[in-house]
Each structure stands twice: as structure tokens, then as C-alpha cells.
Nucleic acid binder design. Sequence first.
DNA 1: ATCCCACTTGGAGTTAACTCAAAGTCAAGA
DNA 2: TCTTGACTTTGAGTTAACTCCAAGTGGGAT
Lengths: 128, 128
Amino acid sequence: MRMAEVSAKYELSQDTLRYYERIGLIPPVNRNNSGVRNYTEDNLKWVEFIKCMRTAGLPIEALIEYVGLFQLGDETLEARKELLKEQRDLLFAKMGDMKKTLERLDSKIERYEQTVGEKEKLLNNLEK
Amino acid sequence: MRMAEVSAKYELSQDTLRYYERIGLIPPVNRNNSGVRNYTEDNLKWVEFIKCMRTAGLPIEALIEYVGLFQLGDETLEARKELLKEQRDLLFAKMGDMKKTLERLDSKIERYEQTVGEKEKLLNNLEK
DNA sequence: ATCCCACTTGGAGTTAACTCAAAGTCAAGA
DNA sequence: TCTTGACTTTGAGTTAACTCCAAGTGGGAT
């Protein structure tokens, strides 16, 4: 699969795809004999995985490390597991913060609804 | 309350507190006659609110707009409500993405646990 | 009186994560 | 043959959100 298609499929700009590859966030993609990238199924899986992780806000640096460990083979299973656990816990904590804020926003909005409602009632009374 | 204390209480650097005030993310804080900030209860509430919102990742730009609207008074109740709703929905969506990623990480970690476990068993067998 | 320390301002520097621009190559179609 | 268009590389530019630095001031302790 060529870059244009990959870009469309995963909604990542071509620049971003090149950038990710350049910094080692996805493993190198093979080229045809004129240097054009040809994404394999395996490449696509990486792209999809990285996109998912980035969407959730995992830092690029940690993901680069994961990809690097992966390429070193089975020796790094344990290290990869620990890395994922660490990021999982960070993500979990962040979701906790967000949940608190979401609740706070919800009750704030609720109060705004009431206040705006009362203002309207007042205006209605004046009209009569 | 002086800045050092506010900084400690909310774990925001003094630089960040000044920055927030400079860009209008918190309303202006009164100074004593030698120009030193003196945070009132009301100022502290803003600091705490903004910290909470920022921790959840709400963009500074939206928060500046909220503070601006607030300072314009009751005319802006409706606009403020809409702004909060919009940010709430964005936050909610983001949490959805993160939940998906969290689940994916959890099952990936689970698989790593199994794989690492099997490798250890293999090694144990070799030792016998 | 002098020294220290917590503050002040204005402006420059940093980091993460892209994003864009310039100049070049190659294959296919008119 | 010439052009078009999708790609290539290298390197610079951008954005958000801080973070740091230099130079200055006012008030309290020694």
C-alpha cells in the first residue's frame, strides 16, 4: 500500500507518517526500486497501533522506546511489559483527573442551565 | 496570600502563576503598595478552577475566553454555558478514546504476562 | 547602613509534536 | 519528448504551554 492510501485510511498526514518513521516511532518501511514506500500488512498494524496510542496521549518518547525494544527481539519481553504497565498506569491516573473535571463541568453546566432559566422567567414576567 | 504560598498550595510554579495572570487566564490580582501580589479568596478559587481544568487538558485559549466572558457580567451567561458544554463534550470524547486505549493496553499487558510466564517455565525445565 | 530575600517586569529560551517548503526523481500518459 | 503528479529528502518553521534569565525594588533583620 502506498503512502497516500495509508494516510487516508488512518487520517495521518503524509508528513506525519514520514516523521514517525524518521524518528523510529514505526519500524522502517520497505521501498520499491525507485525509493517509494510500500506499506506491508505488518507496517499497517504498527501505524494503527501508534495512532491509537498517540490519540490517547501516550508520549512519543515512550512509544519510540517500545518500538526499539520490540525490534531487539524476545530478550526485551519483560522490559516491554514494564514499559506498557507504566504507561497504562499514567493513562489510568489521567483518566481519573479527567473524570473529576468532567463531573465538575457537568454540575457547573447544570447550574448555568438553572440560572439562565431563571433569567428567562424573569424576562417573561416583565413582558406580561 | 502571597505568591510563594499560592504556588505551594496549588503546585503551580510562580512563573506559571504570573504567566496565567499575564495572558488573562486568571483575573488580575491586587498588589500592595510596593507592587507585590496579594491573592484574595476569590483569586484562589480561580487558580484552583483553572488548575483543575488545565490538568484535564482543556486548552488555555478556551479558558481565557471563559474568564473574559465572566468578567463581562451576566450578559454572557448563555455564551459561557455553551463554551463549557463544548469543552465538556470534547473532554468526554477524549475520555472515550482513552478508555479504548486503556483496554487495549490491559489486554496487551495480559498477553505479555502469559508470554513471559511461559518463557520462565521453559527455562525452569531446562535447568532440571 | 547594609545585606538578604522575596518579590517585580520584560523578554528570551525550551519542549513536544508536528507541519511546511524547496528542490529533486521517477513512471505513466498526451 | 514533454508534462504531470505522486512520491522523495533535508531542513526550517509553527504552536501550545510553559520556563528561565537578567536586572531592578522594597522591607525586614543584623
